[in-house]
Amino acid sequence: MDLINNVTGVDEEGRSRQRILSFAAKRYASAIERNPEDYDALYNWALVLQESADNVGPDSISPSKDALLEEACKKYDEATRICPTLHDAFYNWAIAISDRAKMRGRTKEAEELWKQATKNYERAVQLNWNSPQALNNWGLALQELSAIVSVREKQTIVQTAINKFRAAIQLQFDFHRAIYNLGTVLYGLAEDTLRTGRQFDAKEISPNELYSQSAIYIAAAHALKSNYSVYRSALRLVRSMLPLPYLKVGYLTAPPTGNPVAPHNDWKRSQFVLNHECLQQVSRGEPKQSTQSPSAMLASTTHIEKPLIKVDILDITSISACADLTLPPGAGLCIDTIRGPLYMVADTWESMDGWLDAIRLVYTIFARGKSDVLAGVITG
């Protein structure tokens, strides 16, 4: 209570808000005196401390923001000890720890705090898996942690962060913050790969492809929230990394047109392009192996035939990964349309994830009435 009572607020609105918080804190303190096992009172008291920390001025020494957050963490700890299934407490506890870590820069102490935060986000997601915000924050905490740990640990942590952002998007397809964050972590991974000069084998994603993937997510975030200046600035940086005038270019193995149950030998690996309107096949047959970027490969195609497969975005009803054993070897992809399902196979599961996300994002942008914004990005 002494900590909360000494918070004055930086302006009149803050002072008014702090008076309300102080009154609430007294009620929760009284509830704990009556019943020390009242985990709801402990949880709400922690929230009051956390909100009070936001009211502390940047130059305040007594109480400090860190002292309030530390006390909030103690209350969250007590509440979750009494009620181990209190997922909201683990989530807000992780936020408080993250705020403490941010004050400590890239130090060993900050590293330990970020590790604690990731553990609490993990516990929050275990108790409430249907929380895209918790998954997104978990990814952000991992991203911060990756900037502090050794190079040997970094790659694993970054890959885990990518998985968390992707999981958040799969729960909420229009979650623009997670979409943008995924783009930034992929961009950072591409930069790190080039900076270290590490050789990568054919099974790994090249820096050029990572840049291209990064640009897809940032372009999608911008299309969903074009008034966000940070998305607009990031898009200016990465737009040239897209295979313009398309959003995505790559290879998929598909059956002959009109014969989805054709023998595996009749399925052909060919080039596909995705824009704001459709996914379509642009070349026939097996391409030669190339180290070129997707946009360069598209430009070098010598003979563009009439599209054999074309899926209009407005015809799609759902899209999902598919592990059907009747498909050729590889990572299966099923696009359900109003005309029936279309099955295709990507070279790897990582490639399939990229196609799955890209098509879902284009469909989500279409469903939100933002296709014209995406069209402006890729066609200029």
Rank of each mutant, 00 (worst) to 15 (best):
N6L: 08
V10S: 13
D11L: 03
E13I: 14
S16M: 13
R17G: 03
L21Q: 06
S22F: 06
F23Y: 10
Y28G: 00
I32V: 11
E33L: 09
P36R: 06
L42K: 13
W45Y: 15
W45D: 03
L49G: 07
Q50G: 06
E51W: 08
V56M: 02
P58C: 02
L68I: 00
E70Y: 05
T80M: 04
T85D: 13
D99P: 01
E109R: 06
L113C: 05
T118C: 11
R123E: 13
N130M: 04
Q133R: 12
Q133Y: 11
N136A: 09
N137E: 09
G139R: 03
A141I: 05
L142C: 10
L145H: 04
V149G: 02
S150L: 11
T156D: 11
I157M: 03
A161Y: 07
F165S: 08
I169S: 00
Q170K: 09
A178W: 05
A178Y: 04
T184A: 06
L186M: 12
Y187C: 06
E191S: 10
E191G: 02
D192A: 15
S206V: 07
P207Q: 08
P207A: 06
A215K: 02
A215P: 05
A223P: 09
Y228I: 05
R232I: 03
R239S: 03
M241D: 12
P243D: 07
Y246K: 11
K248A: 06
V249M: 07
T253C: 13
P255H: 05
H264W: 06
W267F: 02
R269D: 01
S270G: 01
F272A: 05
V273D: 01
G285E: 02
E286K: 15
T291S: 13
Q292A: 14
S293T: 15
S293C: 09
P294V: 10
S295P: 03
A296L: 08
T301A: 11
I304C: 01
L308V: 14
K310R: 15
I313A: 01
L314R: 15
I319F: 09
I319Y: 08
A331S: 15
D336W: 10
R339Y: 12
R339W: 10
G340V: 05
G340M: 08
L342G: 03
V345R: 09
A346V: 10
W349A: 11
S351N: 13
D353L: 13
W355A: 11
A358E: 00
A358K: 02
R360P: 00
R360G: 07
F366C: 06
G376R: 12
